Simulated scan of single mutants.
Amino acid sequence: MTSILYRGGVVHSPQDPFAEAVLVDDGVVAWVGANDTADGFAARADRVVELDGALVTPAFVDAHAHVLETGLAAVGVDLGAAAGVTSPADALARLHDAAADLDARSGEVLLAHGWDDSAWGDAGPFTRAELDAACGGAPVYASRVDGHSAVVSTSLAERAGAIGAPGWSDDGLVRAQAYDRAREVARDLAPVRRTALYRAVLAEAARRGIVAVHEMSTPAADTRAGLSELLTLTADAESALPLVVGYRGSCAPRPTTRGSSWPTCRA
C-alpha cells in the first residue's frame, strides 16, 4: 500500500467543511480533517506533501461529452468569430491555407467548423463553387456553428451521395439527410487516426484535472465500435487517462399499435 498525506491546505469536502489535510491510500481518499490530526498520520505515510495553503478540490467529472467530436474540432479549421473569421472571404482564406497542407492522393477530408453567416451581414455563407476554387477541389466539410448544417465541396458531396438527397442545395449547403450523409463521410476515419484522436482528447482532459468522462455516444457522433474502444482504452487505471463511462443512445423501431404509427429509426 502507498500512502500520501497532503496537509497545510484548504480541502474542499462536504465531509468536513474546515478540513486542511487529506490522506490518500492507494489512490483512494482514506481520511480528511484538521492539520493537528494529520500530524498523527505523517509517521506512517510514505510521502508527506506540504500544501502551503493551496486549495484541494475533488477532481472534475465531465457528465456529457463526445470524445471524437472534441478531437475532430481540435484538429479542424476554426472558422468562428473568436478565431478572427468575420466574413466569407476570411473563411475561404483559412480553408485555402489548410488545403495546401493536404495530401491530395490520400483523400483526406478537410474539416472545418464554427462559421456563422448571421454575423456576416448580407454576405451570406460561402458556396460550394467557392470552396472548390479555394481548396483545389479537395473534399471539404465545413460545419456551421449550429452543428446541424454544413457547406461541402463537390468532391465530398459526390463521395457522400449527398447531391439530390433531401436537404441538398446546389450551393453546397446541406441539411437533413444530405447533411447526415456528408457528416458520415467526414467521420470515416482510419482506425489509427481515430485512436490517436481519442488519446489526445483524453490526455488533455487529464491534464486539465478531469478524472472521468461520460461519453454520450450516438450514431451521429461515433460508432458502437468507437465507444467500445474508448471503454477499453480507459478501463485500466494504469492508462493514466480519465475513466470513460459509456452511454449509447439511438432510435429503436417500435411495433405499430392500432391507430398509430412509429417512424423508422436508424440504429
Rank of each mutant, 00 (worst) to 15 (best):
residue 48 V to C: 09
residue 60 F to Q: 03
residue 46 D to C: 03
residue 239 S to D: 13
residue 133 A to D: 15
residue 213 V to P: 06
residue 212 A to M: 05
residue 59 A to N: 04
residue 169 S to E: 11
residue 255 P to L: 10
residue 245 V to M: 09
residue 91 A to H: 11
residue 266 R to S: 14
residue 261 S to L: 10
residue 150 A to W: 07
residue 201 V to W: 01
residue 158 E to I: 03
residue 94 R to I: 06
residue 61 V to E: 04
residue 92 L to D: 13
residue 231 L to F: 00
residue 23 L to S: 06
residue 123 A to C: 02
residue 263 P to Y: 05
residue 54 A to S: 11
residue 226 G to P: 10
residue 241 L to C: 06
residue 170 D to Y: 03
residue 9 G to Y: 02
residue 232 T to S: 14
residue 13 S to T: 14
residue 125 P to C: 05
residue 1 M to I: 07
residue 265 C to F: 12
residue 2 T to R: 03
residue 132 D to Q: 10
residue 43 A to W: 00
residue 251 C to Y: 12
residue 244 V to T: 02
residue 55 L to G: 00
residue 202 L to C: 07
residue 132 D to L: 06
residue 143 S to G: 05
residue 43 A to P: 05
residue 189 L to T: 13
residue 2 T to K: 01
residue 204 E to M: 02
residue 65 A to G: 04
residue 166 P to A: 09
residue 23 L to K: 04
residue 178 A to T: 04
residue 138 A to R: 10
residue 200 A to E: 00
residue 109 V to A: 14
residue 3 S to T: 14
residue 206 A to M: 08
residue 178 A to C: 05
residue 165 A to H: 08
residue 211 V to P: 00
residue 264 T to L: 10
residue 131 L to R: 11
residue 91 A to L: 09
residue 41 F to I: 03
residue 119 A to C: 02
residue 207 R to K: 10
residue 11 V to W: 04
residue 225 A to C: 01
residue 114 G to H: 09
residue 218 T to W: 07
residue 36 D to W: 13
residue 217 S to E: 02
residue 121 G to M: 08
residue 53 G to N: 02
residue 75 V to R: 11
residue 182 A to G: 15
residue 148 H to I: 01
residue 130 E to I: 13
residue 111 L to G: 05
residue 229 E to T: 14
residue 181 R to V: 02
residue 48 V to Q: 03
residue 156 L to W: 00
residue 146 D to T: 13
residue 154 T to C: 01
residue 147 G to K: 02
residue 135 C to F: 05
residue 34 A to F: 01
residue 67 V to C: 11
residue 44 R to M: 10
residue 71 G to Y: 07
residue 125 P to R: 15
residue 120 W to E: 05
residue 80 G to N: 07
residue 117 D to A: 15
residue 61 V to T: 13
residue 216 M to H: 14
residue 83 A to K: 10
residue 191 P to D: 12
residue 76 G to E: 06
residue 179 Y to N: 07
residue 101 D to T: 15
residue 104 A to G: 07
residue 49 V to F: 02
residue 72 L to D: 04
residue 201 V to S: 10
residue 175 R to D: 10
residue 23 L to A: 11
residue 151 V to T: 14
residue 42 A to I: 01
residue 203 A to R: 06
residue 30 A to K: 03
residue 29 V to M: 13
residue 196 A to Y: 00
residue 131 L to A: 06
residue 54 A to V: 01
residue 85 V to R: 10
residue 7 R to E: 08
residue 2 T to V: 09
residue 143 S to P: 01
residue 123 A to R: 13
residue 131 L to P: 05
